[in-house]
Amino acid sequence: MPRWFWLGVGIGLLFVAAAGAVKIALDARAESLPVYMTIPDWPFTDQEGHTFWLGQTRGRVVVLGMIYTHCPDVCPLITARMREIQQQVATEGLSDQVFFVTITFDPERDTPEVLRRYARARRVDFTNWAFLTGDPSTIRHLTEVLGIYTERVYVINGTPAAATPETSGSELTYFINHTDRIFLVDRQGRVRALLPGSRTELKDAMEKIRRLVRERSGA
C-alpha cells in the first residue's frame, strides 16, 4: 500500500477519535446538573443536642429541607417526601453515600427535643438523617443564602392579627409562610438541584441523586 493511504487512514482514525471525545464531553455537560450555590459550613445543633457542622456532610450527597414543626400542612409533606427518598436510597444500597438534613427556620420553638419528637412521630431513620436547629441569626442567614422566603403571620383566636411579639395574650401564636423546596447538594457542598418540596416526585429526585452519587469527589 502506498504511504499516502496509511496516512489517510491515520488521519481518519484521529478524526473519529476526536469526534467521539467531543461527543462524550458534550454528553457529560448536558447530563451534569447546574451549580446554584455553596452550602456554608456553619454550626447547628442536632436533635440530640450535639453540635453539627454542615461541612460534616462533605463527601456525601445531601438531601436538604427546611421546615418548622408547627406547620401542619406543607412541612409534614416535605418530611414525608424526604423519608420516601430515604427509603428508596436504602433500597438501592446508597445509604452510606447519601445524607439527609432537615433544618428548622423556627429555632425559637423548635428545640432539639421538639425536633426529635417530631421526627420520631414520623418514624424517621436517624442513621443518615439529622434534624437541626440553632442560633436564630445563623438560621436567618442560611435562609438568605438558600433563597428560602419566610414571613411570620400572627394569629389571635384563629383570626389574623396585625400583632407583634410585644402583644400579649394566651391565644396569640404565629404561622410562617415559606418557600416549599428540597435541595440536592453534591459531595463538595454545592447545591445542584432545586426540587419542589412537598410536590417532589420520587422518580425525578432519585434520577438526580444517582447522577450526583456517580460524580466523584473533586470531579
Partner: peptide, 18 residues
C-alpha cells in the same frame, strides 16, 4: 413540650396537626 409562655405567646407547647 410544656414550655413556659414567652412574650405572651405559647411558644413550644402548641404542637399541631391537620
Amino acid at each position: 413540650m410544656g414550655h413556659e409562655m414567652e412574650q405572651g405567646m405559647s411558644h413550644g407547647r402548641e404542637s399541631t396537626s391537620a
